[in-house]
């Protein structure tokens, strides 16, 4: 078990260009499941590869278990990594793939066998030992890659989008499995993904990244309910948070908090707006409305609403209704920096 820490970690691929990762300060907790979340090109994989030792930082420090590892090779860092492609060795059987890291470390044969059986039993793949990677399904490959990663009981577990190659159905079950698995082995894990659902579902904490910069670190509830800036606010949540300009600030509220009057009354103050529905999408459990505000501070601005199907009666395209949003659900952002600010006053 180990804690990972990065200090002012920066990676610049081409001199003169903006860094792929810029001044990232990060500290994991013992046994934590830390998710790096961001769109492609946000630097999350580069950050992970630097922690793994596969990419050399331009500046900054990486500490694993309190030890500075900047100058250590990947093999000296005591980590294990699962790649997006799984990177199974195609010419080796599943068994030989799993014991490969042990062989490389010169672990004696009997112990290798024991360790491989232990890892395989955790993932339920003992019956695949004799097969070659090309004879496995996507889900089986993923398990073999995981088994290969845990077999030497690493102090740190790095996962680079390990679920992105699975189909949607399998992904959901694999996600749950992976989560339970991590809890059971209790190894500190850093998990890279661009999928916000994965991040929210699995992460103890989520690190939201964009353009090589950490935008926010917090629990899934933190980053969703209390976004630090408009990027986090709009990146998490689908459809994204409504962000509307008002005086010197940007006002944000989530579509699921913007509801017809009468639906889900929250204690405390609320503001109501006249809302004209342009068109709607029926998604089964809910109805997503696309429309414009009528009158008031936001006159003519577009907004999205997510209404539970059970309350969707009468919300037809072209109709206008009174919608409201709880005062505590309204977030304010600075118009220039796009960072969170404290509220001035609620626009009505």
């Amino acid at each position: 078990m180990a804690v990972v820490e990065t200090r002012k970690l920066t990676k610049v691929f081409k001199r003169g260009n903006v860094g792929a990762v810029n001044n990232v300060d990060l500290e994991s907790r013992e046994g934590e499941f830390l998710v790096l979340l961001g769109p492609s090109g946000s630097g999350k994989t580069t950050l992970l590869r630097m922690i793994a030792g596969l990419e050399e930082p331009t500046s900054g420090d990486i500490l694993i278990g309190g030890r500075l590892v900047n100058d250590l090779t990947p093999r000296e860092r005591g980590i294990a990594m699962v790649f997006q492609s799984y990177a199974l060795y195609p010419h080796l059987s599943v068994f030989n793939n799993i014991v490969f890291p042990l062989k490389a470390q010169g672990v004696p044969k009997e112990r290798r066998q024991k360790q491989a059986e232990w890892a395989a039993s955790l993932l339920g793949i003992q019956h695949l030992f004799a097969r070659k990677p090309r004879e496995l399904s996507g889900g089986e490959r993923q398990r073999v890659a995981l088994a290969r990663a845990i077999v030497r009981e690493p102090s740190l577990f790095l996962l680079d989008e390990p679920l992105s190659n699975l189909d949607a159905k399998l992904r959901a079950s694999a996600r749950e499995e992976l989560e339970q698995f991590q809890e059971r082995i209790g190894t500190t894990t850093i998990y890279v993904t661009h999928d916000q659902v994965e991040a929210m579902a699995m992460g103890d904490r989520v690190v939201v990244m964009s353009q090589g910069v950490v935008r926010q670190i917090g629990t899934p509830a933190d980053v969703y309910d209390e976004p630090a800036d408009t990027f986090v606010a709009t990146f998490l949540g689908s459809p994204p948070m409504n962000i509307l300009p008002f005086e010197e600030t940007l006002v944000g509220f989530r579509p699921e908090h913007f509801l017809p009057v009468g639906v889900s009354e929250r204690p405390g103050a609320s503001v109501s707006y006249s809302y004209h529905i342009d068109h709607s999408e029926y998604l089964g459990a809910e109805l997503v409305l696309y429309g414009v505000m009528v009158g008031g501070a936001f006159d003519g601005m577009k907004a999205i609403s997510r209404v539970p199907s059970t309350h969707a009666a009468g919300l037809t395209d072209g109709s206008t209704h009174t919608f409201w949003v709880g005062a505590s659900d309204v977030k304010f952002f600075d118009r220039v920096t796009s960072k969170r600010t404290t509220a001035s006053r609620l626009p009505s």
């Binding site: 990177a87 490969f100 470390q105």
Partner: peptide, 27 residues
């Protein structure tokens, strides 16, 4: 040969030379 395999081999405990001899050549 995918680059990930080199990376995986190095994370798994081989040097660059080791990865070359034990993985790239057999493959």
């Amino acid at each position: 040969i995918p680059k990930d395999l080199d990376d995986a081999a190095m994370v798994d405990g081989l040097t660059r030379w080791g990865a070359f001899v034990k993985l790239m050549i057999p493959m």
